[in-house]
Nucleic acid binder design. Structure first.
Length: 603
RNA sequence: GCCCCCUUAGUUCAGUGGCAGAACAACAGUUUUGUAAACUGUAGGCGGUAGUUCGAUUCUACCCGGGGGCUCCA
């Protein structure tokens, strides 16, 4: 809520109350969940006797406007915990009673705490816990709700046109599938109608960048109902995909990473050894042979990397040993989680497993952070780090975990990077540092991840010979920088709205002859560019040049080379950049040199 | 997986309980084009399976697929 003014926050919070009030009028037996302020407005969860329809939503919205216009005051009332429980029990609001019980127990209903590295926060929370003896209620008109506060004084402060109920969805009470599913009504709310309209307009603009629409339109990828969640990469998408992989390969070869390719099907036994059988098998695709032997379709690369490390005697002199790969992975994600390229069932990662001694962990992390910075800054992407700590289902000793978590915290602190901590969000074999990014609709996604693993090397009985001749277990660092290539490309499409930098553009230049009379010379231009390794297309269709330009613009081709009679005579090309940028007429070889340099520089 | 919504031509979108329509794309012909859409014509479709009905693309159920949400906490 940092960026939101207190006024806006109060306004939204007040509207959540008004929403609940309107819904209660319509369904007197509705049970109320929570109704917080969110990034663009508010929502409220209800348990209702029947599903809401879009017509209901319109009706509720209308009623809300009427309530706002009534100029109702928000009246605060303090109650002891006991009184409040009685009150809400009487009102048949069991979820509210549950919340009050939480307050009694923890001093807050906040269960998941996203903590800062700042230790002082914890102490403050302890104080608030023990001193919480009463709760506050707020009354607006006929409606009373359990609420910490933060409202407008009177609904007359709200512009009745500045909000809009925009969607509904199912939401489990407290996000837990075991709990009843409630109906969540979302509303947009701003200080004025003007701001609301601007937001809606901006949102519509953002949706035009949606990779799910742009990707197929640009011929990058597609989906087919016979393979849900598994993208088909089309020729143009493959060009881009390969560029990213090539860049990754070049940069990692420089840093002594060694690429491997390993089996896509592995016997159950492999995953039993790694621990994935116990923790992940239900999310894997499984193949059964006619001999009734079970194979898991590869969902992660680490077990195979462990096998490769263990296939030879290793010396401390071999460490760090960095094994990289981009094998195809399959994960049977639940259908509701699939989302274009951002969550798929089949994908590749720019993966690597770095085997190091315990002493090398810090240095290795630092180098990986450098790689991350290099890769993300090339695309001008903004990201943040998040440390995931020991999950509920984990392997190994708590002591080892604590040590590993401390190591990561220290490295992050030392790196002076901003980061958050997500408790219990680590992998089952070790804590991790995730790289997070937002998509065009503001949803946060995990991109790269750097995971510390003390467990799998032990389970695979990996060893190296230390200087004193003793056998030691290496530590594995699992790391991906892009994360999944699929997701990264999805984010890139939205980031650039399809207008990629030249070096990854599927088509870098397109030749547009003015008439068929220039086809011969245009072909020469085409061949010359192709010869120089430039991805080039030749539009020799019998269409007007205006149309060819229009289409090339829509394809977001960085350079359009228009050749007519004049260019043919002068052995030149008229260069047009994206978005009507006129770059003038230049000699063909000059253009080739210029574009080649641009590609080289990854500008 | 669960909740709500959606599924009509290659694409974007109309529409109807009684022969399904447009634009763009495709194809054919005309045109030979100077910086974001030349002209004319041709071809092409109701996701699947049941049910209701004289008759279903339209209504109902289920399935496939897609979208949004299911983390946001008095």
């Amino acid at each position: 809520m940092k960026n939101d003014s207190e006024k806006l926050h109060n306004l939204r919070h007040s509207l959540a109350h008004i929403l609940a009030s309107a819904v209660l009028e319509m369904f007197p037996k509705a049970q109320l969940g929570v109704g917080p302020v969110i990034e663009n407005g508010f929502f409220y969860d209800f348990l209702l006797p029947r599903p809401l329809t879009p017509e209901d939503l319109a009706k509720i919205e209308k009623r809300m406007r009427a309530l706002v216009k009534e100029g109702l005051p928000f009246e605060r009332q303090e109650m002891s915990i006991h009184e409040a429980k009685t009150y809400f029990n009487h009102a048949v609001q069991p979820f509210k009673v549950e919340l009050i019980k939480d307050i009694e127990k923890f001093g807050t209903t906040e269960m998941d705490k996203i903590l800062n590295t700042d230790e002082s926060l914890k102490d403050e929370q302890k104080v608030s816990k023990s001193e919480q003896l009463t709760v506050s209620l707020y009354k607006t008109g006929k409606f009373t709700d359990l609420c910490r506060g933060g409202h407008v004084k009177n609904t007359s402060e709200i512009d009745p046109q500045s909000f809009k109920l925009n969607k509904m969805s199912g939401a489990y009470w407290r996000g837990d599938q075991a709990n009843p599913q409630m109906q969540r009504v979302y509303g947009l709310a701003f200080e004025s109608k003007k701001e609301l309209d601007e937001y809606i307009k901006l949102q519509e603009e953002a949706e035009k960048r949606d990779h799910k629409k742009l990707g197929p339109k640009l011929g990058l990828f597609m989906f087919h109902h016979t393979a849900p969640g598994m993208p088909y990469w089309l020729p143009k998408g493959v060009a881009l995909y390969n560029e990213l992989v090539n860049f990754w390969r070049t940069e990692h070869n420089k840093r002594n990473y060694h690429e491997i390719v390993s089996p896509l099907l592995n016997k159950k036994e492999l995953y039993q050894t790694s621990g994935h059988y116990e923790h992940y098998w239900q999310d894997m695709f499984v193949v059964q042979t006619k001999d009734k032997e079970e194979y898991g379709v590869k969902a992660m690369n680490c077990p195979n990397a462990m096998i490769v490390f263990g296939s030879q005697l290793r010396s401390y002199k071999d460490l760090p040993l960095r094994l990289s790969d981009t094998d195809t992975l399959h994960r049977n994600e639940i259908s509701g989680a699939l989302n274009g390229l951002l969550r798929v069932r089949e994908f590749r990662q720019d993966d690597a497993h770095c085997f190091v001694t315990e002493d090398q962990i810090g240095e290795e992390y630092e180098e990986i952070f450098e790689i991350v910075e290099k890769f993300y800054s090339i695309f001008g992407l903004e990201y943040s780090f998040r440390l995931g700590t020991r999950p509920e289902s984990f392997m190994g000793e708590i002591k080892t975990w604590d040590k590993a978590e401390k190591t990561l915290k220290d490295i992050l602190a030392k790196s002076k990077k901003k980061f958050t901590i997500a408790e219990k969000d680590g992998a089952f074999y070790g804590p991790k540092v995730d790289i997070l990014m937002k998509d065009i609709l503001g949803r946060e996604w995990q991109m790269g991840t750097i995971q510390l693993d003390f467990q799998q090397p032990l389970r695979f009985k990996l060893e190296y010979t230390a200087p004193d001749g003793s056998k030691k277990t290496p530590v594995a660092i699992h790391r991906v920088v892009y994360g999944s290539l699929e997701r990264f490309i999805g984010i890139l499409i939205e980031h650039y709205a399809g207008a990629f930098p030249v070096w990854i553009s599927p088509v870098q230049a397109k030749i547009l002859p003015i008439s068929e009379k220039q086809n011969k010379y245009a072909k020469e231009v085409y061949e010359a560019l192709k010869e120089s390794g430039i991805r080039v297309e030749f539009d020799d269709r019998d269409e007007s040049v205006g149309k060819k330009i229009r289409e090339a613009e829509m394809e977001k081709v960085p350079y359009m080379l228009i050749v007519g009679e004049k260019e043919q005579k002068a052995k030149s090309v008229a260069v047009r950049g994206r978005n009507q940028k006129d770059l003038g007429v230049m000699k063909l070889n000059k253009f080739v040199k210029q574009i080649s340099e641009e590609i080289q520089d990854r500008a």
